[in-house]
Amino acid sequence: MSHPILDVAGLTVRYPGAAQPAVRGVSFQLGRERLGIVGESGSGKSTVGRALMRLLPGAEVSAERMRFEEVDLTAATERQMLKIRGARMSMILQDPKFSLNPIRRCGLQIEEAYRTHVRSSRAEARARALAMLEAVQIRDPERVYDLYPHEVSGGMGQRVMIAMMLLTDPDLVIADEPTSALDVTVRLQVLKILDDLVREKGIGLIMISHDLNLVRNFCDRVLIMYAGRVVETLAARDLDRAQHPYTRGLLAAQPRIGGKRAPLPVLQREAAWNEDREEMA
């Protein structure tokens, strides 16, 4: 990768009072591609995303290297971060019910995200917001613009969130479980929209998820995390050929449509997976 958007080496995060760091020595590079981070709850995948956005006040974050384009994220001041967050690097959160402001109209929230970073008139911001709502395939943008978050469905809310996060043309989008609060039928539509926009605009995407099917279908490359560590890095299409027993265990534990109804193989955890490894895949 000649010019990675993101270059992380040895990222370690420790929450105050925790015996073990939540993330231990994570290293990866991201180009203009879609990278999936999968693991169980508590494996540290969301913490990695938040550490990149510098959204972990109080936690002890250290890294040998954490660069976002020309910015050194380990040294950037909060003032610099305010210019980067939401403008060049943005985050799509899990549940639109909890991450949109309940007492402001959807359209105004999208507009605000734009006006925070770009000097523009209200009319221009409104026009941009409406165009973006259309881009996320909301049929009647004018109407949705004036709705409050509780008046829109989950899938619609998540599209509003995607519109808000992509409006400033970021180079990097971190999607933290973007569809796990949505129904299967809606999930595919939302993923498709996100996927099309990311490809079209050449955005680097980090997709954080516990869902192996999702990363297999919507990512180029996958990092598998276990207990704060990356245990394996794979091309998404090679997921079935995973070597690490943890990845294989996760894949086997997944019930499949049309599968045998025999008891599912249960993951046998080994202490060795926690140990330090010198080489990185």
Partner: peptide, 15 residues
């Protein structure tokens, strides 16, 4: 629950 834990609970319910 996570997939790995889901498998344990589904097996338990089936048994």
């Amino acid at each position: 629950l996570d997939v790995s834990v889901q498998a344990e609970i589904l097996n338990l319910l089936a048994r």
